[in-house]
Design a binder for these strands. Structure first.
Lengths: 242, 242
DNA sequence: GCGCGTTTAATTGTCTGACATTTTAGTCTC
DNA sequence: GAGACTAAAATGTCAGACAATTAAACGCGC
């Protein structure tokens, strides 16, 4: 765990990188205690505030946790599933919104991945998943529902579909694709006619999963893909005209 | 952008959260300059080092960049595709390694997602992608190749497959699933017989993509999934016996 | 010897003040 | 008017100090 003493720029970044590498490479195991801030300051030959800034960088990435008191210090942290999930969504959302990925690309990716889950979900979905999907379909049919709430419910429906596959890694990876699309979906105005079509397809998907019919679920998802793409195009055109 | 003055704990974390929310919600746009550290310190009524720690947290997440000098300061940063890609791989790898996801789950997720790319890749793969795949197949057949290098080549082959779909969002999401599996794959000892089978399937996949035959590529991927699962099981058993 | 309260030491969290470094903008001179 | 110089503003770093927190060590009575 060394740093380049000649390069005076970004000392705290260098220190953070050195420690991060030690953690990622497995040199430091979960719950292992890092040296105290003063010790690190001595090791790297910098001041304590500089070490602190480095540690904050690692804390921001959920790589370490700190604890005050006599037996306190910085500890290598086990990255929890929920944190990784949240982090993935944040990163994906920022990537899509800041890099202006076009709707078509994001939509294609999302549905391609979802269709990968459909056969597994048809096999393994529990009654819980089906109940969630039915509940969300019901919510989507409520009159006077705002576009934003409709999108929320749409995401919840699809999350249930994905979770139905019973594979947390799949759910984790999909979260980025599904949730990150929400800002893009929110630009669409859903007419009652649009909603009816979507709700119809959602119902077909839920029915197919209940019957454990993977290929029918896949077909309905394919239709939903095409329909969502059409809606997206219209919204983009309307936006361009404005 | 306010913080709770009563809660004295984790001031820097609170400040970081306040600023992060402002960025994510879109209140601050790309390249917008944040107030200077002294100004932020006044605003939040804390000292400059505390503000600095908060800014370091944001810098660690690639949300801001800082620039020294008269017109310097902290600026909202455009998250680049490459950074998001790298970040996603890091998070996914840590999640898989630290949470001891079993091989079967990770493998299933990886190949399910890859199969989602196959039809698109069959349509759109360029000669470049095909050339990369052929080159990696050739590399995999080289005698005396270490297991680790074989895995590297395997990942490169599959990355070419995924990239062939021509959808950066898809490539981004898949990266987490494919690359993060590498540590798990590295626990497998590939005999010559194993390699021959895998190379055969890779060749079938490359052939299918070259012929733009998506369903054949899918079928080969399905076989590869099953075969990899078998190898993984054997490796896990060998590991357990040891 | 044992249980309980107290002290004490170690560690992080924060503050104050200072200086170094970097970059730009303005100013002054020729 | 062009170029060199200077000043200012901002981040980067440092030193030292104190507060807050926590757990272990200690001492005391029983």
């Amino acid at each position: 765990m060394k740093i380049d003493p000649k390069n005076k720029a970004d000392l705290s970044a260098q220190i953070a990188k050195a420690i991060r590498d030690a953690i990622i490479s497995g040199d430091m195991i979960v719950d292992e205690r890092l040296p105290s801030e003063s010790e690190l300051a001595d090791q790297f030959d910098v001041s304590r505030p500089t070490v602190r800034e480095a540690l904050k960088r690692l804390a921001a990435q959920n790589l370490i946790r700190t604890q005050r008191g006599a037996t306190g210090g910085a500890f290598v942290r086990r990255l929890s599933y929920d944190e990784a999930y949240a982090q993935h969504i944040t990163t994906s959302t920022l990537l899509l919104s800041m890099n202006a990925v076009d709707f078509e690309t994001a939509c294609e990716a999302r549905f391609a991945l979802e269709r990968a889950c459909a056969p597994l979900s048809a096999q393994r979905r529990t009654p819980d998943h089906l109940a969630t999907m039915r509940a969300e379909i019901h919510r989507q049919a409520q009159p006077g529902l705002s576009d934003e709430r409709f999108c929320d419910s749409d995401v919840a429906f699809h999350r249930a579909l994905v979770d139905g596959a019973g594979n947390p890694v799949l759910s984790y990876q999909l979260a980025g694709a599904v949730e990150a699309m929400q800002p893009l979906m929110n630009m669409i105005t859903f007419t009652q006619r649009n909603r009816d079509v979507i709700i119809g397809l959602h119902t077909r998907i839920a029915d197919a999963l209940e019957m454990q019919n993977g290929s029918d679920a896949d077909a309905a998802l394919a239709e939903l893909t095409a329909y969502t793409l059409t809606l997206g195009e219209e919204a983009m055109e309307a936006r361009a005209r404005r």
